[in-house]
Write a protein that binds this DNA or RNA. Structure first.
Lengths: 100, 100
DNA sequence: TCTGTAGTTCGATAATATTCGAACAATGGA
DNA sequence: TCCATTGTTCGAATATTATCGAACTACAGA
C-alpha cells in the first residue's frame, strides 16, 4: 500500500479544515484522537462500515488534520496538532474545547 | 415581510457553525461583517446574484452567526458575536483571526 | 398610485458528498 | 502457503448543496 499524501502545513486551507470538522462523524473522530493521542481506524469507527470510515479519514488527512502511518496490518492515526497550530494558531484548540 | 427566525444561543450547533464558515463566500461575508460592524446584503454581495447571496445569508442566520433586521427597504446584517461567544467561547475569534 | 430599490422565495439544474457493499492489497501468523 | 485481519479503492445509489433566473413582497419617494 502506497503511503498517503499528507499536505504540508503551508498548504492547509482554512475552509477545508472547517469543512472537515463540520461533519459529526469526523468531529467525533478528531475529538477521540485528541483524547487518545493516537488510534487505529477500527478503534474509531463507531461501528460504521469500513469504507465509510476510510472515506472520512481521507477527508481529515486531505485537510491536514490527521496523519496516518502504517504499522504492520493496522494504520495508526494521530492529530497534526503542531502543524495545524503553526498554520492556524489556536484554531484546533478553540474548536476542540467546545462542549457539545 | 415576516421577520427572520434567529435561533437562540442555546440552540447553536458547533457543526453547523463550522459548516457555515467552510464556504468561501460565507466566510468572506462574515469577515467583512466583522470589519464593518454591520452592512446591508448588497454591500456584501461581491457582485453575485441576489438569490445566491440571500441563500448564503440564510445559512449564516440559521447557524446563529448573523442577525438580520429590516430598516426600510434594506436589511441590515450584523454578527452575533456576543451570543456566539457565550455559546462557543473563543471560537469565532479563533477563526476570524486566521490569515488566509 | 406608480415606480424603483432591496431582498426573499420558488424551481430547476448542476455539482459535490455520503453511504455502503464488493473486490482488492498488505501484513503477520499458523 | 493458507488464512485472518486491517484498511483502501471502486462503483453506484442517494442525499445535500450551490447557483441563478424569474416571480414575488415590502417599503419609500415622486
Amino acid at each position: 500500500m502506497r503511503p498517503f499524501k499528507h499536505p504540508a502545513a503551508s498548504e492547509f486551507v482554512l475552509e477545508r479544515v472547517l469543512y472537515a470538522l463540520s461533519d459529526p462523524v469526523r468531529l467525533e473522530i478528531v475529538r477521540r484522537l485528541a483524547a487518545l493521542g493516537e488510534a487505529s481506524c477500527s478503534e474509531l469507527d463507531g461501528g460504521r462500515p469500513k469504507s465509510s470510515v476510510s472515506h472520512h479519514f481521507r477527508v481529515l488527512r486531505d485537510a491536514g488534520l490527521v496523519c496516518t502511518r502504517s504499522a504492520g496490518t493496522t494504520h495508526i492515526n494521530s492529530l497534526r496538532s503542531e502543524e495545524m497550530n503553526a498554520r492556524f494558531p489556536g484554531l484546533l484548540e478553540a474548536i476542540l474545547s467546545q462542549r457539545e
